[in-house]
């Protein structure tokens, strides 16, 4: 099994990306949320300035969630291989 992190897109992020998910390679120590989002914007430049900057910093109004469990806006949070990062509007529900 290659070491990977899955990124899932929801709502307007999915609409703009035109995809519902993507896979990122990751080594044993994983990557940070900021690095993951930065990779996302390289693949989907249309997301720059919408949900995050090209440096991977989240824009206000958006949040990420790890494995459906932990919500965070901390771009230094480390993702480990096998984990899934959800990118979504901070306004979940309503």
């Amino acid at each position: 099994m290659p070491l990977q992190i899955c990124i899932e897109f929801y709502g307007s992020v999915r609409l703009r990306a035109g995809e519902s998910s993507m896979l990122l390679p990751a080594d044993d120590i994983g990557i940070t949320v900021g690095q993951a989002l930065s990779s996302v914007t390289r693949r989907f430049p249309q997301l720059i300035g919408f949900c995050c900057g090209s440096d991977g910093a989240l824009q206000p109004g958006f949040v990420v969630n790890v494995d459906g469990q932990l919500f965070t806006r901390d771009d230094s949070h480390r993702l480990l291989p096998g984990q899934t990062l959800l990118v979504l509007s901070a306004d979940v529900g309503g």
Partner: peptide, 20 residues
């Protein structure tokens, strides 16, 4: 951007998220 979800998809966008 804080209202983009409502403008572009509406509250129905919650369904996939809450499912996940």
């Amino acid at each position: 951007s804080s209202t983009s979800k409502y403008r572009e998809l509406g509250t129905a966008a919650n369904l996939s998220v809450l499912n996940r």
